[in-house]
Amino acid sequence: MSVAQPNGHFEIVAQARGVRNCFGPQTVHEGLDLDVRRGEVLAVVGGSGTGKSVLLRTLIGLNRPAAGSVLLFGQNVYAPGMQNTSPLAKRVGVLFQQGALFSSLTVLENVALSLIEHARLPAAEAMQLATLKIALAGLPADAGNKLPMELSGGMIKRAALARALALDPDILFLDEPTAGLDPIGAAAFDQLILTLRGALGLTVFLVTHDLDTLYTTADRIAVLANRRVLVNDRLEIVAAIDDAWIQEYFHGPRGRAAQAARDRVS
């Protein structure tokens, strides 16, 4: 669904070039290149410890790489003056793995916070808009008054999604959106992401372990291995790559089951 421009090129929303990340003696990424095209759902997969979440944090400006450049909407994320007060914050929505909802605020206040602080809306109007985002994320209206600790895992993810969508971002970063959800909740969340992508014209960058999410939502898949992006392409092409990990991942018992599930649906 990524939109090709007339000359056949894709508009690149996020771009990493030659990124190197290391923690102490351990190098996680080395010479990593990645493009995220406008309007696509890009899924990042990889074994444990291959630095999927680190890559996400690097792209959104939370983890300065030791080398290389990261561009979001053509602007260097790590340029001086771009941190924290970054104008990019208004165009980027992030769903953290545990939701990271502010525990002292209700769901409604969590969503309204950036509307009040960034869009400078009066509280009453911010609350109105926030109720809409909560409904968009598929939460019942009475969830708005609850504190994060009163929510179930699935509701926390939806509330965090509502907060990520508050400012109508252009790109949404999702860290393991379906981890810890039951299969029905996970499938509903996949559909929600697809619906919102279609309705809001979002670009989605998602890190996942969930093969069903991969088969349902992803337009392209980036495989992290050997400290870089091994391949970044459509599912059929990635699944056909001759690499031991990829073959095991896509053609192991769970991979086959997820594929069969998708084939039954379509």
């Binding site: 109720t131 809409l132 409904a135 968009l136 209206a141 009475d142 309705a199 014209g201």
Partner: peptide, 15 residues
């Protein structure tokens, strides 16, 4: 976009 928002608007409400 309008369809999605209209559907959500119908079920949204101030708690």
């Amino acid at each position: 976009l309008l369809e999605t928002v209209a559907s959500s608007f119908a079920v949204s409400g101030m708690p």
